[in-house]
């Protein structure tokens, strides 16, 4: 029984968002009477943490605590327009729209606070803990909740903001083919280490180590979660998962979790990552997208590591044990033919 080890490397440049026919997202924010802020969006959180990071961006811009912000993504029929949650675009596109809406709402808040504190708008600051202060005179302050309540019951005003962001459509230059399809790009490089069992064709992934450059991190815990989970999913795409079976009969496509092959906790490799932050010029607070790209570079890195380990180059996914065994048989046949020819 031979177990062969190999190392592979791969890198990815990942565009945040898409060109489309123009790529807009919009947001509306308003304060409730209790001083919390509601961000209305049509951008769906499909589990990636959008509500968390958008809430952080809104809170940061408004100058209030994150738990004072409610993200309402209830209804794509009635909410402000969004193209959707895909292409790692949400933090960048939706974040920009929310930041713009929050800036307008913050100004509206400070205008009412200025009336209460009898101070110019430009001289007011938010402390991030629910208070509006007069800069340089900390004794003069008012609770955000009080401002919000008085705006509605005494001044008859709304504290609200509108935000829109759009990546305009970029046509292809017919002469050069040049275009500007994305707003910013994130980058990553992965080194994978594998062990190939030449008798079973099974591949054990021993390690996936990556460096990511993802712009400014809004929530480092979520970024790390995406990278670690994405490495696992990349390994799964590389070696296990397929809805199209690799056998001739399409009827063998898996119908449930007992047949849809994916790795379990025992197959977990050592996953490590470092994150570099080079803020983008177009994202809110310099963000880029980090969602989809995390499953990308692990795949070619693993396939390259397999080639390095046993000399079998497989170019369709997943790399099943059968493909490796057949590849090894073909390789040995070629080698022995060459050896015979050389004699």
């Amino acid at each position: 029984m031979a177990k062969l080890r190999g190392t592979g490397i791969a890198a990815v440049n990942y565009p945040t968002g898409m060109n489309l026919g123009g790529d807009p997202s919009q947001a509306l924010i308003h304060a409730t009477t209790s001083g919390s802020f509601v961000v209305a969006l049509s951008s769906t959180d499909l589990g990636q943490g959008l509500r968390t990071v958008i809430g952080q961006i809104a809170a940061e811009t408004l100058g209030v605590a994150a738990d004072e912000v409610v993200i309402d993504t209830a209804d794509t029929d009635t909410g402000p327009h969004c193209m959707g949650t895909f292409a790692s675009r949400a933090t960048h596109r939706v974040g920009n729209a929310v930041k713009a809406a929050a800036e307008e709402a913050r100004t509206a808040l400070l205008e009412v606070a200025a009336l209460e504190l009898n101070a110019p708008v430009g001289g007011l600051v938010l402390d991030g803990f629910g208070n509006v202060l007069v800069a340089g005179d900390p004794g003069r302050c008012v609770r955000v909740a009080e401002v919000a309540s008085k705006a509605q019951f005494e001044y008859g005003r709304t504290i609200s903001g509108r935000g829109a962001y759009m990546k305009p459509k970029s046509p292809v230059d017919p002469e050069t083919g040049a275009m500007d399809p994305d707003s910013t790009e994130a980058h990553a490089c992965t080194i994978a280490e594998v062990e190939v069992d030449t008798e079973t064709g099974q591949v054990a992934v021993l390690g996936i180590r990556s460096a990511y450059e993802v712009g400014r991190q809004v929530n480092p815990a979520l970024v790390r979660g995406q990278i670690v989970g994405g490495a696992w999913m990349g390994m799964s795409h590389a070696l296990y998962e397929t809805t199209e079976p690799y056998y001739p009969n399409p009827d063998h496509k898996p119908k449930d979790f007992s047949e849809y092959v994916m790795p379990g906790p025992a197959e977990l490799p050592e996953i490590d990552c470092v994150v570099l932050e080079v803020p983008s010029s177009t994202g809110p607070y310099g963000v880029k997208g980090v969602g989809e790209m995390t499953a990308n570079s692990p795949i070619p890195a693993i396939v390259n590591a397999i080639y390095h380990a046993c000399g079998v180059r497989v170019d369709d996914l997943p790399v099943t044990p059968e493909k490796i065994l057949r590849g090894l048989e073909a390789k040995w046949a070629t080698e022995s033919a060459a050896a015979a020819g050389g004699r």
Partner: peptide
């Protein structure tokens, strides 16, 4: 024991590492 216990519960996001 941890791996065996988790074997029947699918997580598609985390890759199990933080759960372990």
């Amino acid at each position: 024991e941890i791996i065996d216990a988790l074997g029947g519960n699918v997580c598609r996001c985390t890759g199990y590492a933080p759960i372990i």
